[in-house]
Structure formats: structure tokens, C-alpha cells
């Protein structure tokens, strides 16, 4: 019975999944395109001052208005996006590299290696990221690099745990035993039976997490712990604009809106990918 009903239902799901992936992917692509080539083709410089044009509201000349020094705010938001997104991507790459490697090693080897890695992971996971980031900034000073190092130091633990969990789960699955019994080599078991099944869920989590990473980095910058003015970064821009938000709300509106849209696009994409790449919900995420 189930099969009869499941067919059409799955089709409908597939349609929805594609829709999410397309919308999320397109929005994300557009944002990435804008922040990567935007600053290059823009006439105005994100750091150049223009006297007499301070705190102008949005207009045809200045889409996002100008800031307190008369700088074109659209240019600054794009440049800020470049900084924010680059930082998030670099951090995520490092997190994935460290987390997946250690998690896979722990899961596959087991025994004391597993014990040691997981003990560290447990400690790191018990630390709420924001509290820890604040402590790190308190100890080592402010700056985007400090924030990034702090975030990577803490965040890899999630991926180590997820990867280890998936490896353990997949390792226990019957087709791995069956492959072994059919004479598969260890190499073939790892790369043909385990990795392809583990990759999907990790990609899904990473996509969704990239959003949280952007939020965290921007949040810390907003507090003044990350990128320092005058260099633009979405959180820094927000914090700069905050002082003027009674008279020039556009200075807080646009950077926040960009963060919101970027994270939303990542969430949509992740949601779509989740149904597509992780049919067994190995990532253990609510859907």
C-alpha cells in the first residue's frame, strides 16, 4: 500500500524541493555576484568621502543613500558583504576541513582516538558559541581575525560530531557488512559505501550553518568585537548606523536586510538540499 501512495507524494515533494533549491540558489548567486563584482564596477569608492552629501536618504544617485561622511552606502554595503561573506566562507572551509577529518578518523578508528577526540568535542560543544567568542575577544583583543580563529576553534566540533555519527551509523548499516562479505577492500568500503552517503548530510548542515556563521560574525562585529571601522562589514556597518538610526534609518535597514536575505537564501537552499541529499536524515535535523 505504502508504495502506491508514496509515489505521487514523493513527486510532489521533489517539485517543492526543486523550487526551494532554485529560489535559494538564485538569490544566493545574485548576492554573491553583486558583492564580488559590485565593488569592482562601481564608480564610487566605498571609502571615499564626499562633503555636503552626508546622511542622504536613498535616491536614484545613491540607491542606499549615504552615510555620515557622505560615502555611497550602496558601495559600502556591497564591500561589506564581500568582507562578511569571505570571512564566513573561509571560516566554514577551515571548520569543514578540521571537523570532517577529525570526525571521520574518530568514527572509523574508534578506540582511544575516538575517545580523545570526542572528549575535546564534548567540551567545545558545551560552550555556547557566543559566550566563548566574547571570552576569546576579551582575552585576545578585537578584530576580524581573532573572531574567525575563535569561531573555527569552537565550531569544528559540530562537524566532527556529525561526521563521526554518520560514519558510525553508515558503518553499522548492512550494506557495508555485505560489501565486506562480497570481498570489498577497505578503500572501496570507505570511498564507495560510506563517503557518498555521508557527504550529502554534511553538505546540508554546512549550507544551513553558513547562515548561522554569517549571523555570528556579523553579530560580533556589531558589538565592536570584529572588523573595525572604517573598513565596512555588515555587522560593523549596522553598528555604525545605529547611532543615526533615529534620523537615518536606512543605515541600519540595508546592512541588516542584506544579512537577512543572504541567510534566508542559504536556509531555503539548505532546506531544499536536505530533502534531496539526506533522505535518511543522517544529519539528525528536524525537517
Amino acid at each position: 500500500m505504502l508504495r502506491v501512495v508514496a509515489g505521487p507524494l514523493l513527486n510532489r515533494f521533489a517539485a517543492r524541493t526543486n523550487f526551494l533549491i532554485v529560489i535559494g540558489g538564485a538569490a544566493l548567486g545574485l548576492i554573491l555576484l553583486a558583492v564580488s563584482i559590485g565593488p569592482l564596477v562601481m564608480q564610487t569608492d566605498a571609502l571615499s568621502f564626499e562633503r555636503g552629501k552626508e546622511l542622504l536618504p536613498p535616491s536614484a544617485d545613491h540607491w542606499f543613500g549615504t552615510d555620515r561622511f557622505g560615502r555611497d552606502f550602496f558601495a559600502r554595503v556591497l564591500e561589506g558583504g564581500r568582507v562578511s561573506l569571505t570571512a564566513a566562507f573561509i571560516a566554514m572551509s577551515l571548520i569543514l576541513a578540521i571537523g570532517i577529518t577529525l570526525g571521520a578518523i574518530a568514527g572509523y578508528l574508534g578506540s582511544w582516538v575516538d575517545g580523545a577526540v570526542m572528549r575535546i568535542v564534548d567540551v567545545l560543544l558545551a560552550l555556547p558559541p557566543f559566550v566563548a567568542a566574547i571570552a576569546i575577544a576579551g582575552l585576545f583583543g578585537t578584530g576580524l581575525q581573532v573572531i574567525l580563529i575563535g569561531v573555527v576553534t569552537l565550531w569544528w566540533a559540530w562537524y566532527a560530531r556529525i561526521t563521526r555519527g554518520i560514519v558510525l551509523q553508515v558503518k553499522e548499516r548492512l550494506h557495508v557488512d555485505a560489501a565486506k562479505a562480497a570481498g570489498a577492500t577497505t578503500f572501496s568500503i570507505v570511498f564507495r559505501e560510506i563517503v557518498p552517503l555521508a557527504a550529502g548530510p554534511v553538505i546540508v548542515v554546512a549550507t544551513l550553518d553558513l547562515g548561522s556563521l554569517i549571523l555570528t560574525i556579523a553579530g560580533l562585529s556589531f558589538l565592536g568585537l570584529g572588523e573595525q571601522p572604517p573598513n565596512p562589514e555588515w555587522g560593523t556597518l549596522l553598528s555604525e548606523g545605529r547611532a543615526y538610526f533615529l534620523v537615518s534609518p536606512h543605515l541600519t535597514l540595508f546592512p541588516g536586510l542584506m544579512i537577512f536575505l543572504t541567510v534566508l537564501a542559504l536556509n531555503l537552499l539548505g532546506e531544499g538540499l536536505h530533502e534531496r541529499l539526506d533522505p535518511y536524515n543522517l544529519a539528525g535535523r528536524g525537517g
Binding site: 550494506h175 555485505a178 562479505a181 570481498g183
Partner: peptide, 26 residues
């Protein structure tokens, strides 16, 4: 050793209870 056991598997094969789960779903 591990690799010799693997060679021996050419002569011993298995069928499991849950056949579907014993095959890579992909």
C-alpha cells in the same frame, strides 16, 4: 591477516535477512 581473509571471501558468500538494506541504496 585482513587481506588474506578478503581473498578467502571469493569462496564464501552471504545473503542477509534484510536484502534491501544489504545493498547500497544509491
Amino acid at each position: 591477516g585482513k587481506s588474506e581473509v578478503r581473498k578467502l571471501r571469493r569462496r564464501v558468500q552471504a545473503v542477509f535477512q534484510d536484502a534491501r538494506a544489504s545493498m547500497n541504496p544509491n
